[in-house]
Design a protein around this nucleic acid. Structure first.
Lengths: 172, 172
DNA sequence: TCTTGACTTGACGTTCACGTTAAGTATGCG
DNA sequence: CGCATACTTAACGTGAACGTCAAGTCAAGA
């Protein structure tokens, strides 16, 4: 729905392309960061059409969203992300090989390679997930011990009065 | 003030205090990092006994292990960790109030405060966990789509041989 | 036309989380 | 006694991931 072009009226046949500022606002990154990602190689060098600056299409925006999540949510470094998001030319090669043929055999091969890459990515993320989950479990256990201690202290204080009120804490 | 100076004997079994280098090797951090954490306020300033340098006890080592996991595994910043690991004097106050009395009523109060802190920590970590899990699910979905595409290509190639295989991805 | 606004390419500045000397101090050992 | 070893503080250096400022380009609008 955000695909409507309101800045570039000249060439209406264009697939939707946006300048950097608009993209930045849309995905919640700064223009500087986006340029940096391009320098770094996370994003394709971008097409600079005449005086319009860099223009980004929907796939660029999608990729920027991925990058942002992997940075801010997961906490991967740009180097790790570079490994995770198979480099742009890798992606391009696969696409080209896929669309450059109608041979389903070739397409299968390409798909298998893409799947292998995706599996590696998934494995890395799941590794991270289990690490965080381990810390979570540890914290939960610690909390459980505290609650046990509280329960013990409570029964020591009022050993008879544990009818009406639950002596162990709430679960929130 | 936890331990008296006299515990700095030789290699007796008494030694509940270790110098920084030993601690560093044990937990897998550099001495510099540990000093930095002390400067930063994550760790108590440490007792420096005469020529023995800083000495660390078991609770310090434990705390360093926590810090390391929160940094390297979870990816929290030192600022976040500072919030997570309630400051050292907070912890000390709670301990002192707990052990400084035999009144179970006071102890209950202290425990409830400690539990509240632990719950906040747990909530933060679980927030992180859900973020990572979301990315994981996304990647898994992408992989599922690729597998569907592969299945489609396969059936296009050899339409008769699709007996044993389901076309949808798995749910991790 | 002149101005405004969004963009460009540098280039230097900044924060974080330490690494890396430098220079000094205390202890154990031959 | 000298030397090696492990520590100390103080200060400067570093890589990552940008922030920020300068100077210029370009197209649209009052």
């Amino acid at each position: 729905m955000t695909a409507t072009v309101d800045t570039v009226r000249e060439e209406e046949t264009d697939a939707a392309l946006w300048p950097i500022g608009q993209v930045a606002r849309e995905v919640g990154l700064t223009a500087r960061a986006i340029r940096y990602y391009q320098e770094y190689g996370l994003l394709r060098p971008a097409v600079s059409v005449k005086g319009a600056g860099r223009l980004f299409d929907a796939s660029d925006v999608q990729r920027l969203r991925e990058i942002k999540r992997l940075r801010e949510d997961v906490g991967f470094s740009l180097a790790e992300i570079a490994e995770l998001l198979d480099t742009d030319d890798t992606r391009a090669r696969l696409r080209q090989r896929f669309h450059g043929t109608t041979d389903t055999g070739v397409r299968e091969t390409v798909l298998r390679e893409a799947i292998a890459l995706a599996e590696q990515r998934l494995a890395l993320i799941e590794r991270k997930l289990t690490l965080v989950a381990a810390v979570r479990d540890e914290e939960a256990a610690r909390l459980g011990q505290l609650r046990e201690a509280l329960a013990a202290a409570a029964t020591a204080t009022k050993p008879e009065a544990q009818e009406g009120k639950g002596t162990d804490g709430d679960n929130a």
